[in-house]
């Protein structure tokens, strides 16, 4: 079992990693890197079946146990199966104009199809709702987290005010008296915002990015060489 669960996965990891590195430097092998990537895509495609199976199992179990909130599991299963059916059988799609007699030639997500309907009137509003919740959470997080505890925090607060006001017409309104073309034009809030983002923010982000890149390189090396095997369920 050690061969199947340890040696072979480590060999695959090492070889695939090496192929990726070699293909970056030796043009002749550039296709090998792509093939390694394709293998992952094939695996990921099969994983959809695994995911679907697991989804069914988890929610069927919840319904069968009839624990708190089991009704939601019922809703999940009904939505999952209906969407699958509508998508697989291209319910309500219009055939491709080149093949008007062949129902299956239509585009699954074409306007007017069942899948399109579910997307347009169910998925789209729900996703937008989840995203818009951010506005509320940003406000409550700002209220709680921004405190002028020390000098650095005061700097952070000042920057936050410039960015917040400079991003809307309030910034233009407040510093409109500074001529844009004059020597102090850069001090207008909307210009100051861009300057802060381009210079200070970029410098900070780059420093973090260099650390991240080195971390990625070092972690990749450890994984390729089998020094770090914890992702396979073994690290000790």
């Amino acid at each position: 079992m050690q061969i199947l669960t340890r040696l072979i996965p480590l060999l695959i990891t090492g070889i695939a990693g090496l192929v990726m590195i070699v293909s970056a430097f030796i043009p002749y092998t550039s296709e090998w890197g792509k093939i390694a990537g394709q293998f992952f895509n094939i695996l990921a495609a099969f994983a959809f079946v695994l995911g679907g199976g697991n989804l069914l199992k988890v929610h069927l179990k919840k319904i069968s146990d009839q624990g708190a909130g089991w009704g939601y599991s019922g809703v999940v299963l009904v939505c999952f199966l209906v969407t699958l059916f509508v998508g697989l059988f291209k319910i309500g799609t219009y055939p491709n104009p080149s093949y008007p007699d062949v129902h299956f030639s239509g585009e699954t997500q074409g306007t007017g199809s069942g899948f399109w309907w579910a997307y347009e009137y169910v998925f789209k509003p729900l996703t937008a709702t989840m995203f818009s919740i951010l506005a509320f959470y940003v406000a409550s997080a700002a209220f709680r987290a921004f405190r002028a505890k020390n000098f650095e925090a005061i700097l952070l607060l000042g920057t936050a005010f410039i960015i917040l006001l400079g991003s809307v017409s309030a910034g233009v309104f407040l510093t409109d008296w500074i001529p844009n073309a004059g020597p102090f034009g850069d001090l207008r809030l909307e210009n100051l915002r861009i300057y802060i983002m381009q210079v200070f923010n970029t410098a900070g982000t780059r420093a973090i990015m260099i650390g991240i890149a080195l971390g990625i390189a070092s972690t990749s090396l450890k994984i390729m060489l089998g020094i770090d095997r914890s992702f396979l369920g073994s690290g000790d």
């Binding site: 940003v138 406000a139 700002a142 209220f143 921004f146 005010f161 006001l165 309030a170």
Partner: peptide, 11 residues
Amino acid sequence: HLLMVFLIILG
């Protein structure tokens, strides 16, 4: 944005 500024000041 104005609300955010106000909330930060209030906090």
